[in-house]
Amino acid sequence: MTSERLTVDPARVPTTPSTALGLVRDITAGPESYGPGYVKRSPYESDPADWPVLGADCVWRQESLPGDVLATFTRYSRLPAAGAQGEVRTAATVTLHHTAGQADWEMAKTLEEALRCPDQQLRATERIIGLNSMGAGYGTNGNTSADDYLIEMGTYDNPALGKGSTYYIWNQVRLGPVTIAVVVEGGKGFDQSDLLTVQARAVAGMETKVRSELGAQK
């Protein structure tokens, strides 16, 4: 919603792992950020020491935090199935790097991952198929707020969410040294646009917090 490009005040950016973790915890969206009816998943919060890495075999594994990351934090939420509409699973991740350049590299790697592995194994029974990715720097393709923007869409197979394929939508933005990502999975019976709206809301809410926490004050 905000049209001005963020100018980060370097003095407000945490420099120690503990203050950095405090910041990303404050920003990371919980169930109240998506819409009515969303609740916490179990487990609800990630281990701040973990970092997911996509291997050469296109399988995701948890590894320890890389050196360029000051702090990262994820919260897991869900909208329970109701009537003809299947469960929607969401996860919001906020990561603070030491520098904006490092955050930029994280965005670039994410974009490349979809090219390298259009089919990805998340966990033993969860699979993403036919992933497409699109990036949009500030001022392009309708990105009028973040320094960088990317979206990936594919189909998602998870027996826990019912038979057949469902949606997989990954949306990630960068504001200075911070990256914000929201993934939406499942949602059988929903229009894709409804899920995109939910996702955009959560991203926008976190963007607003980043701006108020790190923005240069006028």
Binding site: A136, G142, S193, L196
Partner: peptide, 12 residues
């Protein structure tokens, strides 16, 4: 807000 909030990969 669904009318414009969503970025459509096919029609950016």
């Amino acid at each position: 807000d669904s009318l414009y909030a969503a970025v459509d990969m096919k029609n950016s």
